[in-house]
């Protein structure tokens, strides 16, 4: 395990100023952040103990799930230790001297572009909208580019980091724009340092036999035990004929026995039952 000056090494996708970093800073005020070019590497960094924790965005209340992360959760062994919701406030950034009407190309992560659809549409047909790896990477590319007509949808923090000017603030379609971030860790961890709240959420991945009533039967199991479902999402299994994996989050119960029992019952019915973790989600 590598520790820089005793700080906790945390893997983050993107670069300085990424929303993942803002989330990671809230989870680990004393963290030492290592940035990676893709989400898969964040998981590998934790697997291979380059970092003790990793932070990944999971879903946004405006634009929905971060598909790339869900795809990784389907195939990679991941353990969730903590989660939080981060308010997202996008700004449009460009180089000093560039005015809003000069912009001909806007870059950002596809999630951020999707969350600002109305604003971007208002810029007109002459402006091309292109996805890139990350919102902070977009800001860095804008700063390093020779093109003065380029702009980035990023966090306000990126303006200072990359020496860019804020052309427009609060550009998201919805001003109540939140993204859920999960913190992943090795299986040996429980929770994260400095946070002592009891788990309030449990995440499961299931495959369900393709027969009438199977899904409703499974949902009944939760209902019977008076367990509140927080989320249910179906994700296609790559290469299969429209078979799906179900990501189900439930409210963690007071009694660990209840949770254990429901897992046993699910295992009797479902070919795949994976528990991603029982953890606290900060609101």
């Amino acid at each position: 395990m590598s520790f820089t000056e005793g700080k906790i090494p945390v893997a983050v996708q993107g670069t300085r100023g990424a929303y993942s970093q803002l989330a990671a800073e809230k989870m680990f005020p004393d963290g030492s952040f290592l940035y990676f070019k893709n989400f898969g590497a964040v998981i590998s960094a934790v697997d291979q103990k380059l970092c003790r924790f990793g932070v990944l965005p999971l879903e946004n209340n405006t634009y929905g799930s971060v598909r790339a992360v869900y795809r990784l959760l389907q195939t990679r062994e991941v353990s969730i230790a903590y989660a939080m919701r981060l308010k997202i406030d996008h700004v449009l950034l460009a180089k000093e001297g560039t005015a809003l009407q000069d912009i001909r190309r806007v870059i950002s992560h596809e999630q951020a572009l999707g969350q600002c659809e109305t604003f971007l549409h208002s810029l007109g047909d002459k402006v091309s909208i292109d996805a890139c790896l990350n919102t902070a990477v977009a800001a860095r590319m804008t700063a390093e580019s020779d093109d003065p007509a380029l702009a980035a949808v990023s966090s306000p923090e990126c303006a200072e980091i990359y020496g860019l000017k804020v052309l427009k603030r609060h550009i998201a379609d919805n001003n109540s724009n939140f993204t859920r971030f999960i913190c992943i860790s090795g299986k040996e961890e429980s929770g994260i340092p400095g946070k002592s709240e009891k788990p309030n959420r449990l995440s499961l991945i299931l495959t369900i036999p393709h027969r009438p009533g199977m899904l409703s039967g499974i949902l009944d199991l939760f209902a019977e035990k008076n367990i509140n479902l927080l989320k249910i999402e179906s994700v296609p299994i790559p290469g299969k004929d429209f078979e799906f994996m179900f990501f189900i989050d439930i409210e963690e119960t007071e009694n660990p026995e209840t949770t254990r029992k429901i897992l046993t019952e699910l295992e009797e019915i479902c070919p795949v039952v994976r528990c991603l973790g029982s953890y606290y989600e900060e609101y």
């Binding site: 590598s2 520790f3 820089t4 700080k7 030492s32 952040f33 103990k49 380059l50 970092c51």
Partner: peptide, 14 residues
């Protein structure tokens, strides 16, 4: 430097 140090420590551990 902090990121580089983390990488160096990790390599050293291997």
């Amino acid at each position: 430097k902090a990121q580089l140090d983390s990488l160096l420590e990790w390599l050293k551990a291997q």
